[in-house]
Amino acid sequence: MSIPTQTKASPPSRTITAVLKEYAGLLIPIGVVLFIIAWPTITGKDISREAMFTVLLSIALASSLNILLGYSGYVSFGHVVFFGLGGYVGFYLMSVHEWLLWPAMAAGGVSSGLLAFLLGKAILRLRGGYFALATIGINEAIRAAINNFTPFGGPVGMTLNFQVYKNYGGASEALWLSFYTLAAMTLIVITVSYFVRTSKFGLGLLAIREDEDAAEIMGVIAPNAKTWAYVLSAIIPGVLGVLFFFKNGSIEPLPAFRLHFSIEMIVMVMLGGQGTVLGPIIGGLGYQSLRGFLLTSPIFKNIQLAVAGALLLLIILFIPSGIVGWLRKRVPALRRVLR
């Protein structure tokens, strides 16, 4: 958590190792993610591309959520609402108005960001459990509303015409395209997360997380800072919702606003270490690997959810600061390197 203290004496020409050391908190997470991105090419299997798609999606969503949850301490339980709403808006534009994927993704991100901005002003006044409950309520309300909204297909949702993928060189090309688009978005989220964490804005968020009233007395304009954190954490899920359902080919209210998915994101953040840049990456990778293992293991297959629950409980009870947080506490030397 500490910020390097020796800036006063920074020499005019810095060596490469010094730069590496200073940005280790960014370079390590980027390195891990690049490795994940390269994995399908290394193995050359389509199946590992699909597995890594899930992992990257988890990492990107968990890292987005971490900007709010980890840095400002506000527990957004219904964060999937941004994934679903953005997905719906983009999907509608692609399927009805024949927009291309990228502008649709941008539209998805903008609508989620806008929703967060409007909601943030209202519900970020609520603290602790009340805020968590409100975010659940919002997700349920919006899902129920979309269920009744005929332009979006109501309860049946919408599907993409298969022809659409021709714009991207065919269905198989579109899968690779989706993968690399996701990879780029993941790298962007992580970079944003790092720069928020090490910025003055981020310091204000951390102060809010620790003690909001004390932060305000020190001049942190908490209502604004929280709202911007909320908006930042909502944009990428909106963008990725569009990408996910584009690849999926159809969208329906239930999978788009599945509360359980929200909670999985929180679990990943907790597992890796909330409030750190690397944590959600480790958490996303760890969670999905574990899930993959449990789902295919003959012993645990039938009770995979229960095993995952038991593991989650053990983490909450015994290493509440997550893997990265635990390492940082145990090995102070790592604090300079692991962010």
Partner: peptide
């Protein structure tokens, strides 16, 4: 006292400087 417990001493004081007048 209301220390920002999980932040370092330095960071605590930086909050004061960053967001003061």
């Amino acid at each position: 006292v209301r220390p920002l417990k999980e932040l370092s001493v330095l960071e605590n004081v930086m909050v004061g400087a960053c967001f003061g007048q």
